[in-house]
């Protein structure tokens, strides 16, 4: 199967380094989330992988070859970069037909991807009449056109309605389950957590993390237990006596760090404290991401979109 391999990749625009000594691999059979604030270099990296921009130094290869060396590349790699790529005065079908013709992709694939992206009924309408979500679906249709084994999608959930978000989540999971290599950039954490297995995190063009989603969260966010009893004071003393790191909330509940629900449940039963609420709370990708970026001094000083 085919991996995307980025090695020591650097891209400078004048004095600005958009991508700075980046190395990572995207493996088949899983969805890799590509995270970072706007301007972190995600889109630039994707353009470098696709041979659209020339790297200042370093390499980006797909299955060991530069993109430009691929014969009929749409059959190997599918990409969504901008939803506005289809001409507004052309129909979705004609847009895809031209793309298919250039790589000798059979015409039946055009109808297949229009069907798969839910655009079959509007395929003969001009793209200018489409909503942003529909144009996004058309971009995804173009990416799937050649039935490629490697798929790169830049912010595919942009403009999708809630139904569309569920759809793309299922689509991405399905593509990875087929054994394809899937790289999806996003700045929406909860969204990414719902489909990604692995993460590549960028900040200012540099690699901040390359790890599984689970490890990424576990390494940065301690799980917590929320517990509430009839008498908050008694509960607090008990927790303190057993050496738990607990914080009291306004509603009288306590959040206990570094603890497990089973452990606290047994303790409270032994002590005869009536439990009104006991809940284990996992760390979220968003918390882990904010923790990571806050650790990067450069980021903490400026506002960013997450």
């Amino acid at each position: 199967m085919t991996s995307i391999d980025v090695r020591d990749l650097t891209k400078e625009y004048g004095a600005r380094r958009a991508v700075d000594g980046l190395s990572f691999s995207v493996r088949p059979g899983r969805v890799t989330g590509f995270l970072g604030p706007n301007g972190a270099g995600k889109s630039t990296t994707m353009r470098l992988v696709l041979g659209l921009d020339r790297p200042t130094s370093g390499t980006a290869t797909i299955g060991g070859r530069a993109y430009a060396a691929l014969r009929e590349p749409l059959r190997r790699v599918g990409a969504l970069l901008e939803a506005g790529a289809a001409h507004r005065s052309r129909t979705a079908r004609d847009h895809l037909r031209a793309l298919a013709a250039s790589n000798r992709v059979p015409g039946a694939r055009v109808d297949a991807v229009l069907e798969r992206t839910g655009l079959a009924e509007v395929a003969r309408r001009r793209v200018g009449t489409y909503s942003l979500g529909m144009r996004q679906r058309l971009g995804i249709a173009a990416a799937l056109l050649g039935d490629p084994e490697v798929i790169l999608l830049d912010e595919p959930a942009n403009g999708l309605d809630p139904e569309g978000i569920v759809w793309i989540r299922t689509l991405l999971r399905g593509l990875a389950a087929d054994g394809r290599t899937v790289l999806v950039s996003s700045h929406l954490m909860n969204e990414t957590a719902s489909f990604a297995d692995h993460l590549v995190v960028l900040g200012r063009g540099r690699l901040l993390a390359d790890t599984s989603v689970r490890q990424f969260i576990d390494a940065r966010v301690q799980p917590e237990v929320r517990v509430r009893s009839a008498d908050a004071g008694v509960l607090g003393e008990l927790l303190a006596r057993h050496g738990h790191d607990a914080v009291r909330h306004a509603d009288g509940a306590w959040t206990v760090r570094h603890a497990r629900a089973e452990q606290l449940g047994h303790l409270l039963a032994r002590e005869g404290v009536p439990v009104l609420e006991l809940a284990y709370r996992e760390g979220t990708l968003e918390q882990a991401y904010l923790d990571l970026t806050a650790a990067e001094a450069e980021f903490s000083t400026q506002p960013q979109e997450v």
């Binding site: 696709l50 749409l74 790529a85």
Partner: peptide, 18 residues
């Protein structure tokens, strides 16, 4: 000019890198 609007050229060149 149609190729220089809205990233059309990028899509074109991903299909035809030569």
């Amino acid at each position: 000019a149609a190729e220089f609007r809205g990233g059309a050229l990028r899509l074109t060149l991903t299909a035809t890198p030569d």
